[in-house]
């Protein structure tokens, strides 16, 4: 066993028994191994890291990781993560969500997290289907593809998660697939190091629920599909819209510097406490009133 694998293994919970809950051939194992590898290579302090998820197959991912882990309600991982990060900004906060979790039931939380630019990494494992519940179509199921609730083909049109994140203001947005493992490692590390809200969409395969309904012959066939359908940002720049039909573009789509939410908040708090002249007089009088009251109250209630 290589040292890198051994190091990555130390980021798996010793008490949680393998195998995972995931089906054979599922791409989530690739994401788990990539994430633990990256954590190990970065030397993340396990006690100072929180891995947070919602519900679904991807929701089970943190259960295996030996950091602080929080498995929340469906769609709400980012709300919980926002609270964790605000209460203890020294924590590295990573969320893992599926496509239904992040952009259907959690879509509102997702766009607002992008807008706020809080220092959280969102890994979105997009397998184009609700896997855990048995194959219902999701907001990323391509138009025309089948799900158990789209038995004649999907009538709706799919979200492009990268465009959604970029449009909502995320300051780091990237996409790759579970086939492109080295790129996945690289992008996850870049995203975790990025100071601000970072999104990595990982196109994955759910053979059990999506593949079988959509004429893939097996998990390997789905890896081939990912290999052939993914083009780099550079390649895409030289392709016509017709050539890009059915392809997805991998690599870094957005990477920009923008002040991070807590940095801005704390700077403001510092200015307020050190420079009261910046506050208008009326507000200052109100605040001083409360401060006097607060001191008395603290003596009574402490």
């Amino acid at each position: 066993m290589s040292q890198a694998i051994e190091r990555a293994r130390t980021y798996l919970k010793p008490l949680k028994k393998l195998p995972t809950v995931w089906c054979g051939g599922c791409g989530l194992g690739v994401v788990l191994s990539s994430l633990t590898r990256v954590m190990a290579e970065m030397g993340l302090d396990k006690n100072k890291t929180a891995t947070i998820s919602g519900i679904g197959c991807t929701g089970r991912l943190p259960t295996y990781i030996d950091t602080n882990t929080l498995h929340t309600t469906h769609g709400r991982a980012l709300g919980f993560a926002t609270g964790v990060k605000l209460a203890n900004p020294e924590l590295t906060v990573i969320t893992a969500m599926g496509d239904g979790d992040s952009v259907a039931i959690g879509g509102n939380h997702f766009i607002h997290a992008c807008r706020r630019n809080i220092d959280i990494t969102a890994i979105i494992v997009n397998n184009c289907i609700y896997g855990m519940t048995g194959g219902q179509y999701s907001p990323t199921t391509p138009h025309g593809k089948r799900g158990t609730t789209a038995p004649y083909g999907n009538v709706e049109y799919e979200f492009d998660i990268v465009s959604l994140a970029a449009g909502a203001g995320a300051t780091f947005v990237a996409r790759t697939t579970v086939y492109h493992v080295r790129e996945l490692d690289k992008l996850l590390e870049r995203a975790i190091r990025h100071r601000g809200f970072s999104v990595v969409e990982v196109v994955s395969n759910c053979y059990t629920s999506y593949g079988r309904l959509n004429k893939f012959s097996g998990p390997v066939d789905m890896f081939k599909w990912m290999k052939e359908s993914a083009v780099t940002v550079k390649q895409a720049g030289e392709m016509s819209p017709e050539e890009l039909e059915g392809k997805f573009i991998r690599g870094i789509h957005v990477e920009k510097d923008q002040p991070e939410f807590i940095d801005v908040y704390d700077k403001l708090a510092q200015d307020l406490t050190k420079g009261p002249s910046t506050v208008n007089q009326k507000l200052r009088a109100t605040i001083e009133g409360y401060e006097q009251l607060g001191d008395k109250l603290k003596a009574g209630i402490g």
């Binding site: 709400r76 709300g79 919980f80 993560a81 926002t82 609270g83 964790v84 209460a87 924590l91």
Partner: peptide
């Protein structure tokens, strides 16, 4: 929904929320 999520997360990270 997010407000409730955030106060739970904050409490887990040591705050009184």
């Amino acid at each position: 929904i997010a407000s409730m999520a955030a106060i739970i997360g904050a409490s887990l990270a040591g705050a009184r929320s």
